[in-house]
Design a binder for these strands. Structure first.
Lengths: 253, 253
DNA sequence: AGAAAATATTTTCAAATGAAAAAGAAAAGA
DNA sequence: TCTTTTCTTTTTCATTTGAAAATATTTTCT
């Protein structure tokens, strides 16, 4: 991803709606270049175009939108993808990093089967050549497009996998947190049928606290995040034998 | 829906991609009017706009695309919707008419719960105020966005409803047909837990034959279609006590 | 380092765009 | 029937758009 694309996304995400003229001026390139960038980014689903403007891709969960810190999320996803081998079956719950993980696995791996309760992820990767998805049933949450409720348990009981990848909404000294009771319940149910629970998240989540408890520290095998993670949070996890993989956020070039 | 919109959709669907200029000329209105129409229709998801052109909304199953015969499909859906009362829980399988039925029920009814194996329908109606969806789990078919396979049975066994609405791909004297073995199997599984199986389909399907058998005539309670249905097909169904509701395709005005 | 190739960016331009105001047509009320 | 209101369509215009060609920059190879 071009460095200008990153800047452009930041501007659009902050202002929500920016004139093409302004973008060209601020980024000091011609409008034509901006337009080509906008085409690319719109195609990736990271923003919307309007006549004369670029607008933030409307998201149902603004705070978790893919285009916020896209590059970091992508790096985290790529690092986690390296732990999955061809032919493996894994579970994924929703979240930006997890979505990008699913994309990578379906685009560039062979015969990876993804079991998920996220209809969003299923739709996101369905055009990819290697997309093989098993969608868990349940009550459909209209905003998140995730399935929750008792049906999840029924569906997931057929499977046992090595790895479950999940996102989080917050963290405190007792463990990992979520913002939604039903989803937290669904994730724990999925975790019962997976050997390792693995967390993928931007480091900001470690400075926030969620609304409901998701996992105690001991339940999580490893964490993939970026190097913005507070030292004390990393320390707490280390002390409980949770592996922490931090990705460098340094901008290349 | 404006009559010009219908004509416009037909042109776009036939040619796949038409210049705005050409549309204005053929329909004999100004380009501005065409542009307003295109905005409306794009917003409804019935076509895509490109710079200078209107293009067919890309569909995974071209033959079943929503924008083909939209008006007829909509009328069929509205007629079927009249049989569903507030507070009812129903099952829907995929199909254009069924999608529009789901839209109507979530937009203009109160407390209707829809059980479906179509992630497409779930996503299509999720913004509607009354959308309450239970999505059945299973193997995710990338093109149709429908879940199939043994997990359907597990999921659906929790429910028993009065009505199951389904679409079909074809018909012969032995009964109703589908184009996909797995989906046909899923539909029959759903039908086991519904009192009445109800078919929603454009009449053209009665002149086509599917690839796999879906239901014998006796398994279907009623059929909602348009008045283009061949007399002999209607006759066969009548003889088996299947109600046939035909909607007039006459263009108003 | 220097040449060749591949990428990225800008210039240029005719065509397409959306907004606003004006004109026309249809529906409703007296 | 005439008037008012509302909805639809057209006219007008300054701005935005994408395509192509020209130029600049970076990368790759020798």
């Amino acid at each position: 991803m071009h460095i200008r694309h990153t800047k452009l996304l930041n501007i659009v995400n902050n202002k929500k709606r920016v004139a093409v003229t302004d973008l060209a001026q601020v980024l000091d390139v011609s409008e034509v270049t901006i337009r080509k960038d906008l085409s690319t980014l719109e195609h990736m689903g990271l923003l919307r175009r309007e006549h004369g403007y670029a607008a933030m891709a409307q998201s149902d969960d603004i705070a978790n939108h893919l285009s916020f810190n896209y590059e970091i999320k992508h790096k985290i996803a790529m690092r986690a993808a390296a732990t999955v081998h061809n032919g493996e079956t894994i579970m994924i719950e929703s979240g930006s990093c997890c979505t990008l993980l699913a994309e990578e696995l379906t685009m560039n791996r062979r015969d990876v089967t993804i079991i998920t309760n996220s209809a969003f992820i299923a739709a996101f990767v369905r055009k990819a050549p290697g997309a093989h998805i098993i969608l868990l049933g349940g009550e459909y949450q209209n905003e998140s497009q995730v399935m929750v409720g008792p049906m999840i348990k029924k569906c997931v009981s057929d499977f046992y996998v090595d790895k479950l990848f999940v996102g989080i909404d917050g963290f405190n000294q007792n463990g990992f947190m979520s913002n939604n009771l039903m989803r937290a319940e669904a994730i724990r149910t999925m975790a019962e049928n997976a050997k390792h629970a693995i967390i993928l998240t931007e480091s900001v989540k470690f400075t926030q606290t969620g609304v409901v408890s998701l996992f105690p520290l001991s339940a999580v095998d490893s964490v993939f995040t970026d190097d913005g993670i507070p030292a004390d949070a990393a320390q707490i996890m280390h002390s409980k034998d949770t592996h922490v993989y931090t990705i460098s956020t340094a901008e290349e070039k």
